[in-house]
Amino acid sequence: MAKIMIVEDEAVIAGLIRDELIKWRYDVFQVTQFNDVFADFEIEEPQLVLLDINLPVYDGYYWCQKIREVSKVPIIFISSRNTNMDQIMAMNMGADDYITKPFQVDILMAKINALLRRSYNYAESGEIMSHNDITLNLDNSSMEINGEMIDLSKNEYRLLYILMKQHGKILSRDKLLRALWDDERFVDDNTLTVNINRLRRKIEDAGIKDYIVTKVGQGYIVP
């Protein structure tokens, strides 16, 4: 499930949002130190950010601008500021939506769910994840392409899961190694290449070309 980052200094509101997100089975990261929100963003790599405007140290506009310098991750502003100018400024800085306090939690959740669907173009339930004609079965580690079920090894499955979940984003070889193995120092770098090539071959044999793209010197991406 997607990870959502909450940047809200009012503890009661932040807790209310966190509890509701957890009910929806989202992975949640709540910022508690506001001096370097951007560092938290880079470490946590959320799929969506909920961002207040009135924050200690720097305001939400500042952090939105910093995030937009490196990422197109969906951002929803949540603020007590309700003027048209505030909303226009938020949108001009790259926000995807704006909701004013006080708000109904069910409306916020509807906005979050809709924005995630639009932004990432995948349908994920407790058992499957789908993207661009490939369905990954999370229950039995297999993929389905054009009605054909294809078995995957443990590493092939984990690679495809990570790449599909973060599609549109370049993932470095180091990051993939860390995700696959507890200690990449004891794994030959060539092992990752072998697994990527095997996974590509299975996808291509089923009729889909260039699903996993190599970015020379950067890593791999599922567009």
Rank of each mutant, 00 (worst) to 15 (best):
L115W: 01
M109W: 02
Y98G: 13
F103M: 15
I78K: 03
A110K: 06
F103W: 14
Q87V: 03
N84M: 08
M91S: 07
Q87T: 05
F103V: 14
S79L: 13
S80C: 13
G94C: 06
M109K: 00
Q104W: 08
S80T: 12
T100V: 15
I88Q: 09
Y98N: 11
F77R: 04
I112F: 01
I112V: 11
T100L: 08
R117V: 07
I75K: 05
T83G: 09
N84S: 13
A95C: 03
M89Q: 15
T83I: 04
K111Q: 12
I107K: 09
K101Y: 12
S79P: 12
K101F: 05
N84L: 12
I88R: 05
L115I: 07
N82L: 10
M109C: 01
T83S: 13
M91W: 12
Q104G: 13
A90G: 04
Y98V: 14
K101D: 07
D86A: 09
M85A: 10
P102V: 04
T100C: 10
S80A: 15
M85L: 11
D106K: 08
L108H: 01
K101R: 15
F77I: 12
N92A: 03
D97S: 07
N82M: 07
L116H: 10
M109E: 00
N92P: 03
R117D: 07
D96T: 00
D96H: 10
N113V: 01
P102T: 04
S80P: 14
F77K: 01
F77Q: 05
K111N: 06
A90R: 01
P74L: 06
D96K: 04
D86T: 12
D106E: 15
A90T: 02
Q87E: 12
S80D: 14
P74N: 03
L116M: 15
L115T: 11
M85D: 11
F77G: 03
N84W: 00
Q104P: 15
N113F: 00
D86G: 05
N84T: 09
D106C: 06
N92K: 03
A95Q: 10
I99H: 10
M91V: 08
K101L: 10
T83E: 11
F77M: 13
S79N: 06
D86I: 13
L115D: 00
S79Q: 06
I88F: 00
M85V: 12
I75F: 09
Y98M: 11
I76F: 09
I112L: 01
I78D: 06
N84Y: 06
Q87I: 04
L115Q: 06
R81E: 12
I88L: 07
I112T: 05
T83Q: 09
M89N: 14
S79R: 05
A114I: 07
A114N: 04
T83M: 04
I76Y: 11
A90Y: 02
M109V: 01
T100I: 14
G94W: 09
Q104I: 15
N92D: 12
M93N: 07
I107Q: 14
P74Q: 03
F77E: 06
